[in-house]
Amino acid sequence: EDYYQILGVPRNASQKEIKKAYYQLAKKYHPDTNKDDPKAKEKFSQLAEAYEVLSDEVKRKQYDA
């Protein structure tokens, strides 16, 4: 799945936009606030993985290549 789609940001998003999108979605899908939703944990880990790659310039360049 596309990391940009997961975070809901365009491919040319700035680091600030990526961070903002991640924090909004992380708050929304955090397992502690969605105890009754088994998919929230999965969504949250996808968000974390996408953010880890896109927030790191080197990893992001490799991902975009």
Rank of each mutant, 00 (worst) to 15 (best):
Glu1Ile: 14
Glu1Gln: 14
Glu1Asn: 13
Asp2Phe: 05
Asp2Pro: 03
Asp2Glu: 04
Asp2Ala: 04
Tyr3Glu: 00
Tyr3Val: 02
Tyr3Gln: 01
Tyr4Phe: 02
Tyr4Ser: 00
Tyr4Trp: 02
Tyr4Gly: 00
Gln5Thr: 13
Gln5Ala: 12
Gln5Trp: 13
Gln5Tyr: 13
Gln5Lys: 14
Gln5Asn: 09
Gln5Met: 13
Ile6Lys: 04
Ile6Leu: 13
Ile6Arg: 10
Ile6His: 03
Ile6Glu: 02
Ile6Ala: 05
Leu7Met: 08
Leu7Ser: 00
Leu7Ala: 00
Leu7Glu: 00
Leu7Arg: 00
Gly8Lys: 08
Gly8His: 10
Gly8Asp: 05
Gly8Tyr: 04
Gly8Gln: 10
Val9Trp: 00
Val9Ile: 11
Val9Gln: 02
Val9His: 00
Pro10Tyr: 07
Pro10Gly: 10
Pro10Ala: 12
Pro10Gln: 11
Pro10Trp: 06
Pro10Asn: 10
Pro10Asp: 10
Arg11Thr: 05
Arg11Gln: 07
Asn12Cys: 14
Asn12Trp: 10
Asn12Leu: 09
Ala13Tyr: 01
Ala13Ser: 07
Ala13Gln: 01
Ala13Glu: 01
Ala13Trp: 01
Ala13Phe: 03
Ser14Leu: 08
Ser14Met: 06
Ser14Gln: 06
Ser14Phe: 04
Gln15His: 10
Gln15Tyr: 14
Gln15Glu: 09
Gln15Arg: 11
Gln15Leu: 15
Gln15Thr: 13
Lys16Met: 15
Lys16Gln: 15
Lys16Phe: 15
Lys16Gly: 15
Glu17Cys: 10
Glu17Gly: 05
Glu17Ser: 08
Glu17Arg: 12
Ile18Val: 05
Ile18Gly: 00
Ile18His: 00
Ile18Trp: 01
Ile18Cys: 02
Ile18Thr: 01
Lys19Met: 15
Lys19Asn: 09
Lys19Val: 15
Lys19Thr: 15
Lys19Tyr: 14
Lys20Ser: 14
Lys20Arg: 15
Ala21Gln: 06
Ala21His: 06
Ala21Phe: 03
Ala21Asn: 05
Ala21Pro: 01
Ala21Ile: 04
Tyr22Met: 04
Tyr22Gln: 01
Tyr22Asp: 00
Tyr22Lys: 01
Tyr22Leu: 02
Tyr22Trp: 09
Tyr22Ser: 01
Tyr23Gln: 15
Tyr23Glu: 15
Tyr23Met: 15
Tyr23Trp: 11
Gln24Glu: 15
Gln24Ile: 15
Gln24Trp: 15
Leu25Ile: 05
Leu25Phe: 04
Leu25Thr: 03
Leu25Trp: 05
Leu25Met: 10
Leu25Pro: 00
Leu25Arg: 07
Leu25Glu: 05
Ala26Glu: 07
Ala26Pro: 01
Ala26His: 15
Lys27Gly: 09
Lys27His: 10
Lys27Cys: 11
Lys27Ile: 15
Lys27Pro: 06
Lys27Asn: 11
Lys28Thr: 08
Lys28Ile: 12
Lys28Ala: 10
Lys28Asn: 08
Lys28Cys: 09
Lys28Asp: 08
Tyr29Gln: 05
Tyr29Gly: 03
Tyr29Thr: 04
Tyr29Ser: 04
Tyr29Ala: 05
His30Phe: 10
His30Gln: 09
His30Asp: 15
His30Ala: 09
Pro31Gln: 11
Pro31Phe: 08
Pro31Ser: 13
Pro31Asn: 13
Pro31Ile: 06
Asp32Met: 07
Asp32Val: 08
Asp32Phe: 03
Thr33His: 12
Thr33Phe: 14
Thr33Gln: 13
Thr33Pro: 08
Asn34Leu: 13
Asn34Gln: 08
Asn34His: 13
Asn34Val: 10
Asn34Trp: 14
Asn34Lys: 06
Lys35His: 14
Lys35Ile: 10
Lys35Gln: 14
Lys35Asp: 12
Lys35Val: 10
Lys35Asn: 12
Asp36Phe: 11
Asp36Asn: 11
Asp36Ile: 06
Asp36Thr: 11
Asp37Gln: 05
Asp37Ile: 05
Asp37Tyr: 06
Pro38Thr: 08
Pro38Cys: 06
Pro38Ala: 10
Pro38Asp: 10
Pro38His: 07
Lys39Asp: 13
Lys39Ile: 14
Lys39Leu: 13
Ala40Met: 09
Ala40Cys: 08
Ala40Asn: 09
Lys41Pro: 11
Lys41His: 14
Lys41Cys: 09
Glu42Asp: 11
Glu42Trp: 14
Glu42Asn: 11
Glu42Ala: 12
Glu42His: 11
Glu42Met: 14
Lys43Cys: 08
Lys43Gln: 07
Lys43Leu: 11
Lys43Val: 10
Phe44Tyr: 14
Phe44Asn: 04
Phe44Ile: 06
Phe44Pro: 02
Phe44Ser: 05
Ser45Asp: 13
Ser45Leu: 12
Ser45Pro: 04
Ser45Arg: 12
Gln46His: 09
Gln46Thr: 10
Gln46Arg: 14
Leu47Gln: 03
Leu47Ser: 03
Leu47Trp: 03
Leu47Phe: 06
Ala48Ile: 13
Ala48Arg: 12
Ala48Met: 14
Ala48Pro: 02
Ala48Gly: 09
Ala48Trp: 13
Glu49Leu: 12
Glu49Lys: 14
Glu49Cys: 08
Glu49Phe: 07
Glu49His: 08
Glu49Val: 12
Ala50Asn: 00
Ala50Trp: 01
Ala50Gly: 02
Ala50Leu: 03
Ala50Asp: 00
Ala50Val: 07
Ala50Tyr: 01
Ala50Arg: 00
Tyr51Pro: 00
Tyr51Glu: 01
Tyr51Asn: 02
Tyr51Trp: 08
Glu52Phe: 08
Glu52Gln: 10
Glu52Met: 12
Glu52Leu: 11
Val53Met: 04
Val53Thr: 14
Val53His: 04
Val53Leu: 04
Val53Pro: 00
Val53Ile: 10
Val53Tyr: 03
Val53Gln: 03
Leu54Cys: 02
Leu54Arg: 00
Leu54Ala: 01
Ser55Gln: 06
Ser55Phe: 06
Ser55Asn: 06
Ser55Asp: 04
Ser55Gly: 15
Asp56His: 03
Asp56Ser: 04
Asp56Arg: 02
Asp56Lys: 02
Asp56Ala: 02
Glu57Leu: 07
Glu57Lys: 07
Glu57Gln: 06
Val58Cys: 10
Val58Phe: 13
Val58His: 09
Lys59Phe: 04
Lys59Met: 06
Lys59Val: 03
Lys59Thr: 05
Lys59Glu: 03
Lys59Leu: 09
Arg60His: 02
Arg60Glu: 01
Arg60Leu: 01
Arg60Trp: 01
Arg60Tyr: 01
Arg60Thr: 01
Lys61Arg: 12
Lys61Phe: 05
Lys61Asp: 07
Lys61Glu: 09
Lys61Pro: 03
Lys61His: 09
Lys61Ile: 05
Gln62Asp: 12
Gln62Trp: 11
Gln62Lys: 09
Gln62Val: 08
Gln62Asn: 10
Gln62Met: 09
Tyr63Pro: 02
Tyr63Asp: 02
Tyr63Met: 02
Tyr63Lys: 02
Tyr63Gly: 02
Tyr63Glu: 03
Asp64Cys: 03
Asp64Leu: 02
Asp64Gly: 02
Asp64Pro: 02
Asp64Arg: 01
Asp64Ala: 02
Asp64Tyr: 02
Ala65Tyr: 07
Ala65Met: 13
